[in-house]
Design a protein around this nucleic acid. Structure first.
Lengths: 189, 189
DNA sequence: CGGTTGTTGGGACAAATGTCCTTTTTTGAG
DNA sequence: CTCAAAAAAGGACATTTGTCCCAACAACCG
């Protein structure tokens, strides 16, 4: 349900506690509901979550929201923007209170270019996200809401996680009304 | 509509014509409709399209298809599988007759690890695909079919491309019947 | 030419989903 | 504790989409 990455966490933990790049690495704290990134704004720094969970949301012009993913410890934020040299693709909001390492963009670039292991892990992480995003898009387009909801509920249970109805609906790309109907159908079995 | 990548094309063109890695690089030709990759099969080689267009399709267990993307000259196939060490995520089928460079997996890994420019371009390409896939998923979930169809038609026109009704429907994640209805509504304006 | 097959277009009905509201329940601030 | 605000549940109706067909038309092979 929410992704984590031990490697990036350990990497940042070491980098930060070693004090080797003080000017380029800092810690930031967020309260529940705070925005870590804002859609269409320029990226300030790359963030790596130390603890807490964040949600990536695309806000569409028709007022609807779509949740792309939930990110936990060790996950990167803003790496797409650095690689593509663009403004933020989506909002990222703290689902719980949250602490993240903040790395300056030039220093992040430097790590990617010089650290082989980090580079390899970044490639792998992007590949995984792409695979997940693609299969999820396909599933949600081609199966019923009920099917998608069952998946979601299973994932939430596995990770001892709960979401508001609104968030569940945004993850499934449906309205809360439809979510409620599907929940009822599933419950009545 | 269909993605291309000049850098990868030039890179392979040079590599192949130089004959520097004969054992690891070859050319393969496909007829329209041939499969370049088969979902769930182990990956034989990484492919880079020299000419022609391919479609990436996920085949779901309920018999429905979802088209993830169309790939043209210079696009990579199988790189996700190499990075993730998995079987093929999806089918890839030639939409036109097609010629591709085929690179052995170890040699592809070698390039990624040793060629800085190639590595950077791969990161960028993955980032772009992820951004495109994410925004498309959001659009298709949160807007009407008609809206998605208008986008698709515009893209097709821009690239002087045509698709069968079946392919259009699979791209939009809907049935052909619904596609026909939406086409009629748009036409009646 | 005739027949077969694949593609396209659409009718009729069923099922799924959205929209708009209202009511109930829960939560949190003062 | 009390009240206001937010979250959850669901009724009624409209709209969208899918399912199951069948008919028309084009493409192709013997």
């Amino acid at each position: 349900m929410y992704r984590t990455n031990e490697y990036f966490y350990d990497f940042m933990e070491r980098l930060h506690s070693s004090g080797a790049a003080k000017d380029h690495v800092s810690l930031k704290a967020y309260r529940q509901g705070d925005y870590l990134l804002q859609q269409n704004s320029p990226l300030a720094r790359v963030l790596i979550i130390r603890e807490g969970i964040a949600k990536c949301i695309i806000n569409e012009e028709n007022g609807k929201d779509f949740i792309l993913a939930f990110l936990g410890t060790g996950q990167l934020l803003g790496e797409l923007e650095v690689l593509r040299n663009t403004r933020c693709l989506n909002n990222v909001q703290a689902l719980t209170s949250l602490v993240a390492y903040a790395v300056s963009v030039p220093y992040f670039r430097h790590i990617v270019e010089t650290d082989k292991a980090f580079n390899a892990m970044l490639l792998q992480e992007l590949a995984n996200r792409l695979a997940i995003t693609s299969t999820r898009a396909s599933l949600q387009q081609l199966y019923t809401v009920e099917h998608g909801l069952r998946n979601l509920l299973r994932l939430l249970q596995q990770q001892h996680m709960t979401l508001s109805k609104e968030d569940m609906a945004a993850y499934l790309g449906i309205t809360v009304r439809s979510l409620n109907r599907a929940l009822k159908t599933i419950g009545e079995e």
